[in-house]
Amino acid sequence: MVLKLKIWRQEQGQKDGRFESYVLEELSSDMSFLEMLDQLNENLVKKKKVPVAFDHDCREGICGSCSLVINGNPHGPHTGSAVCQLHLRSFKDREEVWVEPFRAKAFPVIQDLIVDRSSLDRIIQSGGYISVNTGSAPEAHSIPVEKGKAEEAFSNAACIGCGACVAVCKNASASLFVSAKLSHLNLLPQGQAEKKSRALRMVGQMEKEGFGACTNTGACSRACPKEISLRSIARMNREYLKAYLSSD
C-alpha cells in the first residue's frame, strides 16, 4: 500500500515548524505505524537527509514514550491503545496521514515529534507516592484490601504517563493523569495517611506547570490508551475539596 504522509518538522531550538510531505510506497498492511516511520527514516538517511525525531521505546503500549497525534487523534484512530500498537491495516491505500506532536503549553516541542513531558514527573514528585522507607514495611497480609477497591486502584495505576489526555484536551488539562495517580493511592488503605496532603500538593503542582482547567468533556478518557475513567477526575475534585476545606 501507499501512504501520503504530512509530518511536523521542527528544528531543535526553533519556536516554530512546518508540515513536510513524504510518500511511502510498497508498505505492508501488517507493518506497525512506527515501523513505517523507521522505513521513512532509513530512506531519509540513505539520501543523507535528517531523519524524523520521535520518542518510542517498548513498542508494546506500556512505556508511554510515544507521543504522536495522527489525523488529529493522539495515538491514532483506535481507543485503548498507544500509537506503537497501531498497524497500517487501519489505514486506506493512498490515504493522507497527518502526523504531529502532542501539543500543550506544558509540553514544549523539543524537535519534530518529540516533546518535553517532565512536568508530569514533577507532579508525581510533589506527592504521587506513599512515604515508606525500604525495610520498614509490615507483613504484606497484615493489610487486607477489598477486592473491588484493589481492582479500581489497579485500573487507575495502569496509567502509562504518556500525556495523551493533555494532548486531546481543548484546555490542555492534566486532570486525568493527576486523578489516576491520586485515585490509585487514595483508594488503598496504605495511602490514607497522606491522603489530604497528596491531593493538595499534586493539584497545586498541576496548576503551577501551566496545565489548563477541566471542563468535563470526557475527551481525555476516550483518548487514554489505558481507558482510565472520567470518574477519577470527579474523585480528585472531591478529594481536593475535602482536603482544602479541612486543612489548617
Partner: peptide, 13 residues
C-alpha cells in the same frame, strides 16, 4: 512483597 504492598503496588487479591 511486604515493601511493594506498603508502597501501594496493586497486586491481584
Amino acid at each position: 512483597i511486604d515493601h511493594c504492598v506498603a508502597q501501594g503496588v496493586p497486586f491481584a487479591r
